[in-house]
C-alpha cells in the first residue's frame, strides 16, 4: 500500500480505464454535438452528408422567434418554480424535523410526487386542468367562479405548467434541505433560546445562515434540472397556445427531430449548455467569495 501511494504514475494509470470510459460516455457525444453544430446534415441515397456551414447555425439563433420565446419562458419557469420549490421545501423540512417519530409518514407523503413517472404526471394534471370536467374547475365552480381554461389561455398556460413543476419537484428540495436541517447543531439553537431569542430570531440569525450553503446548493441543482424541463410541457401544452409555454428543451426537440435539422438543433443545444455552464460558474464564484 505504501509503495502504491509513493508511485504517482501508477496511480494515474490505475484510473485511466475509468477515465477513458467516462470520456467515451460523455465527452465524445458532446464533441460530436459541437462538431455537428457547424454543419448541415442531409441524407440521400442511404448516405449522410455533412456540409460545413461555419457559424451560420449560431447566427440564425438571433432571428429565431421560437428560440427567443423558449429562452424567455424557460428563465421565467426556472426562476419562479425553483424559488417556490426551495421555499416550500425548506418550510416542509423545518416542519418535518420537529414532529419527532411521525415525521416518517410525512416524509413518505411529501416524496410521493417525485416518484411518479412524468408521463403519469402529465396525464393526471391534464385531466385535472380539463376545461370541461377537470377537478380544478369543479372546485372553483363550487365557490361560484366560472370555468378557467388553464392550459388553453395564453396568459395562464405557463403558470399552470409552473404549478405542476412545483408540485412535481418540491420533494427534491425537501429531501436535500431536510438532511441539512437535521444536521444543524442543536446546542447553538438551545443556547440562543436560553439567551431569550424568539423562535423567529433564532431561525433568522442562526438556522438560516447555517443552512445557507445547503439552500444555495439546492437552488443551483434544482435550477439546472428545471432548465431541462421537457416532459411537462410536451404532455400538457405542446408549447402552446402560441408560444406561451415554449421552453428551450422543447424548441431543441422540434428543431432537432421533428424538423430534422440536427445541425441547427446542435447549435441550439451547445448554446444552452454554455448558458447553463456560465450560470453555474457565476453562481459558484459568488458563493465562494461569499463564504470567504
Amino acid at each position: 500500500m505504501a509503495n502504491f501511494r509513493g508511485r504517482g504514475s501508477a496511480r494515474y494509470f490505475s484510473i485511466l480505464p475509468a477515465f477513458l470510459f467516462l470520456a467515451l460516455l460523455s465527452a465524445l457525444p458532446l464533441f460530436n454535438l459541437f462538431a455537428l453544430s457547424f454543419a448541415e446534415v442531409s441524407w440521400s441515397g442511404g448516405q449522410s452528408t455533412w456540409t460545413w456551414v461555419g457559424l451560420n447555425n449560431y447566427l440564425a439563433l438571433g432571428s429565431d422567434a421560437l428560440f427567443k420565446a423558449g429562452i424567455l419562458n424557460t428563465v421565467i419557469l426556472v426562476g419562479v418554480a425553483t424559488t417556490a420549490q426551495v421555499t416550500i421545501g425548506l418550510m416542509l423540512a423545518l416542519a418535518c424535523s420537529r414532529v419527532g417519530r411521525r415525521s416518517r409518514i410525512y416524509r413518505t407523503l411529501f416524496l410521493l410526487p417525485i416518484l411518479i413517472p412524468g408521463i403519469i404526471i402529465g396525464a393526471i394534471w391534464r385531466l385535472m386542468y380539463n376545461y370541461q370536467f377537470g377537478v380544478v374547475n369543479q372546485i372553483i365552480d363550487l365557490v361560484g367562479l366560472g370555468p378557467v381554461d388553464w392550459l388553453g389561455s395564453s396568459s395562464l398556460a405557463l403558470m399552470s405548467v409552473i404549478i405542476v413543476d412545483i408540485w412535481h419537484w418540491t420533494p427534491f428540495s425537501f429531501l436535500l434541505l431536510l438532511a441539512a436541517v437535521e444536521a444543524l447543531p442543536r446546542d447553538v439553537s438551545e443556547a440562543a433560546q436560553i439567551d431569550g431569542a424568539s423562535k423567529w430570531t433564532e431561525f433568522r440569525r442562526i438556522s438560516l445562515p447555517l443552512l445557507w450553503p445547503a439552500i444555495f446548493t439546492t437552488f443551483v441543482f434544482r435550477a439546472i434540472i428545471a432548465f431541462k424541463v421537457f416532459d411537462e410541457v410536451y404532455l400538457l401544452t405542446g408549447g402552446g397556445p402560441g408560444t406561451a409555454t415554449e421552453v428551450i428543451s422543447f424548441t431543441i426537440y422540434q428543431r432537432f427531430f421533428t424538423q430534422d435539422n440536427p445541425g441547427y438543433g446542435s447549435a441550439m443545444s451547445v448554446t444552452v449548455i454554455f448558458i447553463i455552464a456560465a450560470v453555474i460558474a457565476v453562481a459558484m464564484t459568488r458563493q465562494r467569495s461569499r463564504s470567504q
Partner: peptide, 17 residues
C-alpha cells in the same frame, strides 16, 4: 420544416398573440 412554421404561426393567430 415548413409545417413547424405554419403550426406556430397559425396557432398564435387563434390564440390571439
Amino acid at each position: 420544416e415548413i409545417v413547424a412554421v405554419l403550426e406556430v404561426g397559425l396557432n398564435r393567430v387563434v390564440a390571439g398573440e
